[in-house]
Design a protein around this nucleic acid. Structure first.
Lengths: 223, 223
DNA sequence: GCCTCTCATGACGTGTTCGTGACGTGAGGT
DNA sequence: ACCTCACGTCACGAACACGTCATGAGAGGC
């Protein structure tokens, strides 16, 4: 049993989905447009969102982004027509958990919904969150959750921190970082890396977390 | 050193992965499709499987399931494109140990592979830690762990200590040290070595650990 | 068009590293 | 016991790596 928000402008589809979900033992909620959806999602906890991309008024992708901005966004299953492959890819990139092409078989839809409900979020989105001690990095939203609150990181900052965290306990050389993040094959002759690490450290609760190994590179010790 | 099966239909990726693994001290095996992979995995022992999900012929997920049916299935690291979140979730549900999204940084892939091999750090980073009695030297981070806490060593200090520890119980002559660490072929006429050893001893809990053999060189006795 | 955010750049300050030479000290040979 | 030589210790200074700052260009939002 889970609270599932249906976002679609067509009444018939909404009622169809509602009935299917009730039959499967869930509690459906409805929203006819993006604005309503955002309100609902903010005012109460929702376990999963079924989102139609094509809607009048607020665009589906916009709704997607709005939901992703939440602290602990629920999984989002996108409903899309067969045609719009581009939008679909974009939706996935924007953080959609899964998608179902219309017209769909209710059984399949249900299977997917259940899958995303059953799977703990940490597993479903494994790799999205990088946890280290008492702070965790949301690599998609580029937000760092610390005991002192959330801070948003820039793209570069996030990339560097993610790189270090993924290789936690390992020393990452300046060459590796410059190559894999900046795409530089040789030393740029400037101190981009240092500046970026500096900015990162100011945003981290514990600046000593990123250790510098003189003449080699940087390292985040294992928690 | 571990036997790692690479399952991918693209030749270029297979060779790239092979090279990377060999460089890291592993023995790679290749399979171009699911059928071949299943055969290999049944006919011999494999320590880890690198599995591409998207393949013609037998589906990656099917291979995954087949491997899981083995008596003592090896860990499976799945390679997946950024887009296919759904398949990824399914792969995790089906028992994949971890996954890496393509395109990937080889260093990260290696780190994960090593992590999932039963004997992670000792094999993957053989020689990284030099242990002697109650202290251990992390040669990559250049940090010395002592009962009194950690101290960071400079490059030279670390090099000298590592050299002595690797030849524990053996007397290292001044000529050897000066040649192998400083690159000096003849006595520099200064006391670089003594100064360095001196600095080292102050950072070590037990200064008598580095024994001087008058007229010859230095030695660290076996613990 | 204006504003904000990101990010590269180069100047500058600072701490670390490491070689150097002066000097003290202890060991070993005679 | 003395002398000598090898080693240890110290303080100094130069080179270097890193961190910090202010600045300006460019992208993107309103």
């Amino acid at each position: 049993m889970a609270d599932i928000l249906i976002v679609d402008d067509e009444v018939r589809l909404r009622t169809l989905l509602s009935r299917t979900l009730v039959a499967a033992g869930h509690r459906p909620l409805s929203a006819a447009d993006g604005t309503e959806a955002c309100q609902t999602v903010r005012s109460r906890t929702v376990d999963l969102v079924l989102l139609d991309l094509v809607m009048p008024g607020m665009d589906g992708l916009t709704v997607l982004r709005q939901i992703q901005k939440l602290d602990d966004p629920p999984p989002i299953v996108v409903l899309s027509g067969v045609g719009d492959v581009g939008t679909r890819v974009q939706a996935i990139n924007e953080g959609a958990t899964d998608f179902v092409t219309k017209p769909f078989v209710t059984a399949e839809l249900l299977a997917r919904v259940n899958r995303h409900l059953g799977v703990p979020r940490s597993v479903a989105e494994s790799g999205r969150y990088l946890v280290h001690g008492d702070l965790s990095l949301d690599t998609r939203r580029r937000v760092l959750h610390t005991p002192q609150g959330d801070r948003s990181l820039s793209e570069r900052e996030s990339a560097v921190l993610a790189y270090l965290l993924r290789r936690e306990g390992d020393v990452c050389t300046r060459e590796e970082l410059l190559k894999d993040i900046w795409g530089y094959d040789f030393d740029p002759g400037s101190n981009v890396l240092e500046v970026c690490v500096g900015r990162l450290r100011t945003k981290i609760a514990n600046p000593t977390m990123i250790e510098t190994v003189r003449g080699v590179g940087y390292c985040v010790a294992e928690a």
